[in-house]
Design a protein around this nucleic acid. Structure first.
Length: 450
RNA sequence: UCCGAAGUAGCUCAGUUGGUUAGAGCAUCUGACUGUUAAUCAGAGGGUCGUAGGUUCAAGUCCUACCUUCGGAGCCA
């Protein structure tokens, strides 16, 4: 006897079963009655199949069962598959038997429109809708593409811990918890520091897992819990890091195009835009970007002491906000890497450019179509004294970073890496309006249910 | 944290200068129909108008506070 995962017929493969009798298990997505004719749209997680019950052809109790079905009731249907032009997808099931697992009463999400708050309160049910189903399938494909890319290019998976003793980039945005007798522990906001140690052991590594930011950000680009993949490679300089990032993002996008056309179509995504995501991407230095902003009259809103706002030329040294990034990207159809940011606006572990100590060997990748920053990375400081001085000048506790400094004591080498935010990448590729749709159970500043 | 917007039926919304019994569509229930794709048609049930206080002969509507949600900024992936 075959086990359930082998024997039960999935709707995805119904085309192959034309002429055969099949058994389908699933949930009622929609019903329509037409007198002696009942249509049941059955959803089984793999797809949706139209099932038809015609009164003269079935036993009385089967027709009554069909009439009693409500949205999201769970059923097993036995019937014959046949080609039918009038049915969506070109096939339908001529129903012979119905077994009702459970009748659902008053399913809250109807085929009509709903508000954001309502859908988020019912996130556990919203996931059943066609749109959310498609986004989750694209997400799963992106995750697989990420793993395949690194696994296939000599990177070893070396996951970093989630519970950490100290901050990676300052403590202001960390979730805190008690850790037995050892005091406070924090949820990791990046696996990078551990990733660097791992790279010194394996050469090329990547970490992939959830990260946590207690930032009080309330925008359509922010989650407090999100997944990040962070490659780190010994002997990589900034140029290598940027090449890697371009290859990687191109691979992800092209893999989704190859395997998820159906889902992208269901989402109404303009795939011609994604087809253009081919190397080489655009690149410009931070300094060039500032010049571009000022040449194109993209001003910065600055608050005065009296509370009023004035518009000023973008000053060199200030970090870009979402409005600057968006303005910059409007000229491009492909992602753009902006590199060599001012040292002051970047993290302590980034190496300074030997040719210009005012800038760090940092790079961000901005995605087109308003998607914004998806990658942040850098070449790391590999000089012991320079790194130690940076830790102290950032008021970070030196004793917490002794192990990290060891990486510069024992065989320090140039090395680089970056972090790619999974949900932001899913948002860009699916064209989702809001990042809350890109994670099955998103955590946001004002929402932790369900 | 700051700026802006909104809370009316299970859901999405309308509700005029304050004025009799607060409306519609969808959903639910009953009935009709052999091709529906968010079916259609006929009928029925469904409300502490976010909470508390105030003004008034009279408050869904005006005022105050609070709560909740949404959008944006900063910060970031």
């Amino acid at each position: 006897m075959a086990s359930a995962y082998q024997s039960y017929q999935t709707i995805e493969r119904l085309q192959e079963a034309i002429g055969q009798e099949v058994t389908l298990n699933g949930w009622v997505y929609d019903t329509t009655g037409k007198g002696k004719l009942q249509f049941i749209k059955l959803r089984d997680g793999s797809g949706i199949a139209q099932c038809v019950v015609f009164k003269p052809n079935v036993a009385e109790e089967v027709f009554e069962a069909a009439k009693s079905l409500t949205q999201e009731s769970s059923v097993r249907i036995v019937g014959t598959v046949r080609a039918e032009e009038r049915a969506p997808g070109g096939v339908e099931v001529d129903v012979k038997e119905i077994k009702i697992w459970q009748i659902a009463k008053d399913y809250p999400i109807t085929p009509k429109e709903h508000g954001d708050a309502f859908l988020m309160e019912n996130r556990h049910l919203w996931l059943r809708s066609t749109r959310q189903h498609a986004i989750m399938r694209v997400r799963a494909t992106i995750v697989k593409a990420i793993r395949d890319f690194f696994d296939g290019n000599g990177f070893t998976l070396m996951d970093s811990p989630i519970l950490t003793p100290a901050a990676c980039e300052g403590t202001s945005t960390l979730f805190e918890t008690e850790y037995f007798d050892l005091g406070k522990a924090y949820l990791s906001q990046s696996g990078q520091l551990y990733g660097e140690a791992s790279a010194m052991a394996q050469g090329k590594i990547y970490t992939f897992g959830p990260t946590f930011r207690a930032e009080k950000s309330k925008t359509r680009r922010h989650l407090t819990e999100f997944w990040m993949v962070e490659p780190e490679a010994a002997f990589f300089e900034l140029a290598d890091d940027m090449d890697l990032a371009e290859d990687f993002v191109e691979y992800i996008v092209q893999t989704v195009l190859k395997h998820r056309q159906q889902e992208l179509a269901a989402l109404g995504r303009d795939v011609t835009k994604l087809e253009k995501v081919r190397r080489p991407f655009h690149r410009m230095s931070y300094t060039e970007a500032v010049e571009w902003l000022n040449k194109n009259n993209v001003k910065l809103n600055r608050k005065q002491a009296d509370g009023t706002e004035i518009q000023v030329d973008f000053p060199w040294g200030e970090d870009f906000g979402a409005p600057q990034e968006e303005a910059l990207m409007q000229q491009f159809e492909k992602p753009c890497i902006v590199h060599r940011y001012p040292t002051e606006v970047k993290a302590f572990y980034m190496k300074r450019d030997p040719e210009n100590p005012k800038v760090a060997l940092a790079m961000d990748m901005l995605a087109p179509e308003g998607a914004g920053e998806i990658i942040g990375g850098s070449q790391r400081e590999d000089d012991f004294e320079a790194l130690k001085e940076r830790i102290l000048s950032h008021d970070l506790p030196l004793e917490s970073f002794e192990w990290y400094l060891d990486l510069r004591r024992y065989g320090s080498v140039p090395h680089s890496g970056f972090g790619l935010g999974l949900e932001r990448t899913v948002k860009w590729i699916t064209g989702a309006e809001h990042i809350r749709e890109t994670n099955p159970y998103p955590r946001m500043i004002y929402r932790i249910q369900p």
